[in-house]
Simulated assay, not measured.
Amino acid sequence: MTEPRYDQDLGTPETSTVKAGGRPDKRRAISEAARRVFGQQGYARASVDAIAVEANVAKRTIYNHFTDKEALFLSVAVEGADAVTEAVRVLMERHLRKIVNLEEDLTAFCLDRANAITEFPDHFALVRTIHAEVTRLPAGVLEKWMAHGPPSAHQRLAPYLRRIADRGLLAFDDAEKAANRLNTLTMNDVLIRSFYGALPLPGSAVEEIVHDGVHAFLRLYAPAPSAPEERI
């Protein structure tokens, strides 16, 4: 069987690049295997043959579900990003929907979010592949992943911070910029120092990064103190 060309235009994972039909359990096995193989071997080196072996399916079975290697990579990258996004959404609802103590609630959210890295090892291995091979990935793949992955995380956090600001607990002009700053102060160092989960940090190191980051964020976006009432 001749391997399909990889230079065709890409659709979204739900449209032209992922085929309808096929057994869901087979598709799940293929996706899980592909995520592992891409994470271990990288995009360029990974082959559909290796993924078929890892999934314990025939190569033609993969093409019953996905049009080509690009489609398969895009699908598993987006699925992983969406899974992490959903996990973070649950954490935002738990910690940021009803604020009791702003610093404590923000810290608890950021700690849980940082610790969630260890819950998705195959996904973050794939993220390391994306960072390492960014110049080799098809532009369409990279663009669609960025719409689902970490680059858009601040957009999902922004509404929660805006509601907190509406209560007078924070002050900023742009909620998305404030959300991006919170991500930068509390998550970037964890991701970089752990090499995106490859070398998990000790809990004490994560706690220090998060506590310091939240403290700096609150100082940066603290509302102005109310002016004292004039005595007549």
Rank of each mutant, 00 (worst) to 15 (best):
A165Q: 14
I130W: 12
F73R: 06
D122T: 13
V88G: 03
R128S: 11
P4K: 10
V206H: 00
V76W: 04
E230Q: 12
L220R: 08
K59P: 12
L170N: 01
V76I: 15
D212G: 09
M1T: 08
R167Q: 08
R45P: 08
R193T: 13
R163A: 09
V90E: 01
E143I: 10
L102W: 07
A83G: 05
E70T: 04
I130D: 11
V88A: 12
K26W: 00
L201I: 09
G39P: 02
D68T: 01
G11E: 08
N180P: 04
A116G: 06
A205L: 11
P4D: 09
M146D: 07
P200E: 09
H215I: 03
R45F: 13
A171K: 08
V57F: 13
R113V: 15
K144L: 12
D173N: 09
E70F: 06
V48F: 11
E176V: 15
L191F: 15
R89L: 06
I99Q: 00
E93P: 01
P159Y: 06
E79K: 09
I130L: 14
Y63Q: 05
A227W: 00
T15Q: 08
P13E: 07
A132V: 10
E3F: 07
E93Y: 00
F172I: 11
R128I: 14
V78L: 08
I192Q: 12
E70G: 10
T184E: 15
A178V: 10
P121G: 10
R136N: 00
A222C: 04
H148R: 13
R162M: 01
M146G: 05
R5D: 12
M92E: 02
K177L: 15
E207M: 10
A227C: 07
V88Q: 09
A116I: 12
P228E: 10
F66D: 03
P202N: 09
Y160V: 05
S16V: 12
P150H: 04
K98I: 15
L201F: 02
F120Y: 15
A165T: 09
R28G: 01
V37A: 04
F38P: 02
F73W: 03
K19C: 08
I99P: 01
V100A: 06
D122F: 06
L157D: 03
E230S: 11
P200Y: 14
K98P: 00
P24A: 10
G168L: 05
H148Y: 03
I62N: 06
R167G: 02
L142R: 13
E143A: 15
I209H: 05
K69E: 14
G140H: 03
S47E: 04
G39F: 06
E176T: 14
I99G: 01
R27E: 01
